[in-house]
Every structure is written in C-alpha cells, then in structure tokens.
Design a protein around this nucleic acid. Structure first.
Length: 420
RNA sequence: AUAUUGGGUUGCUCGCCG
C-alpha cells in the first residue's frame, strides 16, 4: 500500500489524477483498499501542484468507492478551493459535511480565515474569526497568527496589534511567527523603532528569532535607505548561527541594485554564491528590476539569458519586467513579441502584464489599440482593477477623449471598482 | 506521517520631500 500511495502522489504532483486513481484503486491487486488517508494525500499533492479541480474529482471518486471524508479531507479541499478563489464553495462544502456529521476543526477554520484574507475579504475573515469561537472552536495560535499577518499585509498595524492583545487576553501563547508577523506589519508602515523594540521584547521573553525574523528587519532597513546597517546585520548573521538564506541576500541585492549600487550588488552576488547560497528566479528578478529601472533593455535581456544559463526558468515577474522596460523605452512592438513568448513558455499573462501593455500602447499614442486590448483582457477573464482603469482613463483624458474617459469612469464604478 | 499561519522580485495616477 505504501508503494501505491506514493506512486499516486507522484502522479498527483504531475496533475495526472486519473493515473493516480488507477494506482490507488489498484491496491486491491495486493488485497488492500485505499483508505481516507490515501485519498487525502493524493488530493493534497494535486492541490499543491495547482490542480484543485482535479482534486475535487478525486474527492467524488472517494465518496463513490465508499470512503468517508474526515476533517483532513475537509481541510485539504478547503485549501484547494481557496487557492483558486472559490471561497464560497469552500463554505458550502463545510456546511455539507457538517450535516453529514463530519466534524470540522480549528484547522479548517484557519484555512478559511487565510483564504478569505488572501482574497482580500478582510471583513468576512474577521466575522468568521468571531464566529468560530461561538461555534465552539477556540482560535489557536495559528488562527491569531493568520489574522495578524493578514492585517499586517494590508497595512492595518493597529488591527494586527489588537489581535495580538486579544490573544494575550485569551491566554494563547504567541510564538516566533506571531512576533515576526507583527514586526513585519510595523516595518511595512515604516515603524522601524517599534519593530526593533518588539524584536528585543521577544528575545527577552525567551523567543529565538529565526532567519525570517532577521530578514524582515533587514529588508525594512534596506527599504528605508539604511543599506549600511542592513549590511552590518547581514555580516552579523553570516558570523552567527542564524544563517542568511537566498531571501536575505535577495532583499539586499534588490535595494543595492535599485539604488544604482551596481558594483556592490555584484560583489554581494559573488559572496552569496561563495557561501553556497544559490540565487533563484526571484534573485534574478530582483536584479532585473534594477536594470529595468535604468531603462537598460540590453542589460535586461542579458539578465534574462543569464538566469536561463543557470538553469532557472523565467516566471511571470520576469516577463512582466521585460515587457515593462520595453514599453517604457517606446518599443511596444517588441513588448508584444515578449508577450507572445511568455505565453509560448507556459506563463499566463496576468492583470499586470495587460496593464503594462495598455500603458505602452497609450504612451506610443495608440490609444485605440489600448482600448481594444483592454477589451481583449476582460474577455480573457482578467478583471481590471483600479490601476488598470486609471491607466486607460488617464490616457483617454490626455488625448482629448474626455467623453470616453468619463464613460470608462462610470463603468469602473458600476463594476464595483473603487476610483481612487 | 494525510490538511492551516511569518520574510525577497513586476503595472497607472496624484501628492509631499530632495
């Protein structure tokens, strides 16, 4: 059975759900039947690899062969739904399974909280957070951490701190993640002093900050222009026992390169490699951002070639950065070539890709083309946000098409997209 | 040994400061 489940999970990671099922069901050839755990494991593999719909099919098959779902099943599927933005379906499933006396647990609620947060539905998350206690599920440290991180990411430090207060009142012990999330929230708002205070506080309370905690602080130093202090922190880490990782180095590389410190960035890049820390696609993208900022198209493509020489696959960020630098250097034609290449390469253009192209067309005086691209974009199920509307509204207004601009402005409001 | 939380990279405009 171990072999069959392992094989099934491998198929799952490749999205081959049918082959995976054959492997699971094939257990009967050795006189075994796949149990709930085996199905849960397969669904998890599928979801981790981005095959949520396929996971749901496996779920149906599992019911079909008479396997009862348990709280893990519910958890895995909740994650799957949330990952593809189908939060409502996750809630429906929760209700359904509750009626079949499949008991949800705190983990399931935590998954929902996180899913709501990532979908930007903070109010609904807060409501659920209050609701869960009433339903008899006491929030645990993960619940609190999830809420803190979610408020922190959207710039609501005060609310994050209130949740922290609340967790103390409810006698829920914080952990390193709690503190790191709060420190991150403070840093994001530029409150570095308070962040450092909390950092000291956590240490004196006996918590051991890890590489992530330190990287949050280092990144904040970089982003507020204190690269020297960031470098000092890095050196301290390199000498201590909290080893900096690729994220730590990338954060510094990004700031150095963004602020034009090209040589320092190169030196640091060499140093990280020397320390056995391998740059990843984000590292290259971070450097690429700096190259693009200076409008250096050739340099951008050199970076693009170099990352592939190192065996790294460009992602959406990479292509978007290239498209943007081309648009900004008045080469929309080439930007569209990269756009094609991106799709050939299996990268899905996103809202940012389209907005950049629309902006590029506008700047090249091709406002009509921009409008039709905007239309194409919506037909490709890419829902414009305020920035996308602004881009086109601004260009329309500037090119004397005030009426069209006004019309789009109304459309934007009609689509419940808040003008800023 | 089957599920949940923290760090780095990409888009518009405007304002403030230099």
């Amino acid at each position: 059975p171990g072999f069959h489940t392992k094989l099934a999970r491998s198929y799952g990671s490749a999205g081959m759900w049918e082959a995976a099922l054959v492997s699971l069901i094939g257990m009967k050839s050795i006189g075994c039947k796949p149990n709930t755990n085996a199905f849960n494991g397969l669904m998890n593999s599928l979801i981790k690899a981005g095959y949520s719909d396929e996971a749901y099919r496996v779920y149906l098959k599992m019911l079909d062969v008479g396997c009862r779902p348990d709280s893990y099943t519910l958890g895995v599927l909740t994650k799957g739904f949330c990952k593809v933005g189908k939060i409502d379906e996750a809630c429906v499933l929760l209700k359904e399974l509750k009626e079949q006396d499949c008991v949800p647990n705190v983990t399931v609620y935590n998954l929902l909280l996180d899913g709501l947060g990532r979908a930007g539905k903070l109010n609904e998350a807060s409501k659920l957070f209050e609701e869960m206690s009433k339903q008899g599920f006491r929030p645990d440290v993960v619940s609190y951490n999830t809420m803190i991180a979610m408020f922190g990411k959207s710039g609501k430090v005060d609310r994050a701190c209130r949740i922290f207060q609340q967790s103390k009142e409810n006698k829920c012990s914080p952990d390193v993640i709690t503190y790191t999330s709060l420190i991150h929230a403070l840093c994001k708002k530029g409150k570095l002093d308070e962040a450092w205070k909390l950092f000291e506080e956590m240490k004196s309370d006996g918590f051991v900050p890890d590489v992530i905690t330190h990287t949050v602080l280092l990144d904040a130093l970089c982003k507020s222009g204190r690269e020297l202090e960031a470098l000092e922190l890095l050196e301290a880490l390199e000498m201590g026992d909290c080893v900096p990782d690729v994220v730590t180095y990338t954060s510094l590389l990004y700031s150095l390169r963004m602020t034009g410190k090209v040589d320092e960035a190169s030196t640091l890049f060499a140093r990280m490699v020397e320390k056995g820390c391998h740059p990843d696609v984000v590292t290259f993208n971070a450097l690429l951002a700096g190259v693009c900022k200076s409008g250096d198209v050739d340099g951008a493509f050199r970076n693009f070639a170099e990352m592939q020489d190192m065996g790294l696959k460009p992602d959406g960020y990479t292509y978007n950065a290239l498209i943007d630098v081309l648009c900004k250097t008045n080469d929309v034609e080439e930007a569209f070539n990269v756009f094609e290449k991106m799709m050939d390469d299996g990268c899905n253009p996103d809202l940012i890709t389209h907005t950049q192209l629309i902006n590029g067309l506008c700047k090249a005086g091709r406002v009509e083309d921009a409008c039709s691209h905007f239309k194409d974009m919506t037909e490709r199920h890419c829902i414009p946000d305020a920035i996308a509307y602004n881009t086109l509204i601004y260009a329309l207004g500037k090119s004397g098409k005030a009426l069209d601009a006004y019309e789009l402005f109304h459309l934007m409001k009609k689509k419940a997209c808040h003008p800023n």
